[in-house]
Amino acid sequence: MNNSNMTSESRGALVGSRTLRVTAFTTSKGSIYTVHEDDTTSRNKAYRPEHGRDEVGQQPRSQHTFYVTQEQADALSLVQTHGSAKCIARLSTGQYGVAYMSGKDAGKIERRTVVDAAATPAIGLLPVEVWEGGSRVHFGNNIVAVQSAG
């Protein structure tokens, strides 16, 4: 196996001649995510009084998950505002941004939302889970711990 082109961001932490793949992480609010090999995640949501007991437990597996800073999450949160339908789109550059799906700007990317994201969870980043082609989004809380397997 040639590790010369492998980065710790895209594959996990390189230790000696083997790569450790991140298999799970925990957020600041106590939710535990399982990281699947296809860039999806499954979240086991921790109890939070403001959400009640109905939302505790296993949540639907994402169709894709990527990881951003708080500032990047703030930019992408435009997807959750009222008005024209929007989604989070992965650009040909590998970046992510908010795309308009309807209205006069349909098909356009909101330039101020374009961010470079990490493919691998890391402490301090936030997970962004997407479904339905990016039109359904969950912004997670700060990652406080990661677990790896080799």
Rank of each mutant, 00 (worst) to 15 (best):
I123S: 06
R48I: 04
R18T: 15
A117N: 08
Q80E: 13
Q147T: 00
M6L: 15
N141G: 04
G124Q: 10
V56T: 09
L126W: 00
G30F: 06
H64E: 07
G94P: 11
R90E: 15
A73I: 00
H82P: 02
T27H: 06
S102D: 15
T19K: 15
Q70L: 09
G30D: 09
V68R: 01
I109W: 05
G133C: 08
T81A: 11
T23Y: 01
C87W: 03
A24W: 00
L78K: 14
S8Y: 06
S84F: 13
A73D: 02
G83C: 08
G57V: 14
H138L: 07
D116W: 07
T120S: 15
R18I: 12
L78E: 06
A85V: 05
T69W: 04
L14M: 14
A46K: 14
D74K: 02
L20I: 01
Y67K: 02
L91C: 11
P127Y: 00
S10C: 06
G133K: 06
M101C: 13
I123C: 05
G16W: 05
A145H: 02
R136N: 11
S42W: 07
G140P: 04
L126P: 06
R90I: 08
N5H: 10
T69I: 06
R112M: 09
G52I: 05
G12A: 07
K86F: 06
R61T: 12
T23H: 01
M101N: 10
T81P: 11
S77R: 12
T23G: 09
R53H: 15
S8D: 10
S102V: 01
H36P: 05
T19Q: 15
S17P: 04
K45S: 07
H64R: 15
L91D: 09
G12F: 03
Y33E: 01
T93I: 07
N2S: 13
V115C: 03
E55Y: 05
T81W: 03
K29A: 14
A117C: 08
I32T: 09
R136D: 06
S148P: 00
L91Y: 06
N5R: 14
G134Q: 02
L126F: 15
R90P: 04
R18S: 11
S8V: 12
P49Q: 11
D39T: 05
Q95C: 07
S84Y: 11
L125W: 03
K29D: 14
M6V: 15
V128Q: 00
G57D: 07
G30V: 04
